[in-house]
């Protein structure tokens, strides 16, 4: 379930975000990201010079109304979409300076993905699904499956390794997706609406897992969401509107933002 979003500052939107209390070392940095889709009259600017920062050890939410560019920004930060302008820096590596194959290798080693629709391969067992990132990184199958089994145990799916994703509930599938995203110990975990397809209780259980994952040393969890029920798990929330990050809430301001959102 999604909640209509109201910006905190409804009077004027600053060109650069209001940043409050950045916590640790920089994990993700983006400056002046511009991304357009289509050509000619159909050309649409999805990102209009967006700036973004996230630190290591934090769970960072990106929120905003539909069409504001959240998913596009997430795709650019994850290196799955090339921006037209701007720079992306992940853990000290300038992503925009890498070749396509280098970006692919970087993603493979350093980023874990959790998708809204889980994107588990339906014909593979849970353990095979979870071992995919390890296999992509060159781990041998036996070792990969051992690690995947351990990850499944950690997300509460011990003993179900050989089942197929279709035999699981939505929440359980998302747990498998989390296990898959974390199995190769990535430094950045990218989540696209991880709770939108789940009920409230399951959504909270999933967020507990992600919140714990974000506390791992040197890791950062980025979540794009419409779901105000999970705002309470965030260390920081970046608010996007019209292709830019307009506000960043942390600390005391974060609590007041969450409070105001929940009231609305």
């Amino acid at each position: 379930m999604t909640t209509p979003f109201r910006p905190v500052n409804s009077v004027s939107l600053p060109a650069t975000p209001v940043v409050c209390n950045p916590p640790g070392d920089l994990a993700v940095g983006a400056r002046g990201i511009v991304k357009a889709f289509g050509v000619g009259d159909a050309r649409t600017l999805a990102l209009k010079g967006a700036d973004f920062e996230a630190s290591q050890g934090e769970l960072h939410l990106i929120v905003g109304p539909s069409g504001c560019g959240k998913t596009t920004l997430l795709s650019v930060l994850a290196g799955t979409l090339l921006s037209d302008q701007g720079e992306v820096n992940l853990f000290g590596t300038r992503l925009t300076g890498l070749s396509a194959s280098e970006v692919t290798r970087f993603r493979c080693r350093n980023i874990g993905f959790i998708f809204q629709q889980f994107n588990l391969i339906p014909t593979l067992s849970l353990v095979e699904n979870v071992s995919v990132p390890l296999l992509l990184n060159g781990t041998l199958r036996r070792e990969a499956e051992a690690k995947a089994t351990e990850r499944l145990r950690q997300v509460g799916l011990a003993g179900r390794e050989r089942q197929l994703p279709t035999q699981l509930s939505g929440g359980q599938q998302q747990r498998v997706a989390i296990a898959r995203a974390l199995v190769h110990e990535p430094r950045l975990v990218i989540c696209d609406e991880p709770t939108s397809a789940l009920d409230s209780l399951t959504g909270h259980q999933i967020m507990e897992l992600l919140s714990t994952a974000a506390k791992a040393p040197g890791r950062c969890v980025l979540i794009v969401t419409h779901d105000p029920r999970i705002y309470g798990y965030a260390d920081r929330i970046s608010v996007m509107e019209d292709g830019r990050v307009t506000h960043v809430h942390a600390g005391v301001l974060l609590s007041s933002f969450i409070h105001s959102e929940n009231r609305s």
Partner: peptide, 18 residues
């Protein structure tokens, strides 16, 4: 039919050649 799965593999770091 498997485009989304292949896209997910690509996002996770599977190269075009793989």
């Amino acid at each position: 039919e498997n485009l989304r799965n292949l896209g997910a593999l690509k996002a996770m770091g599977a190269s075009n050649s793989l």
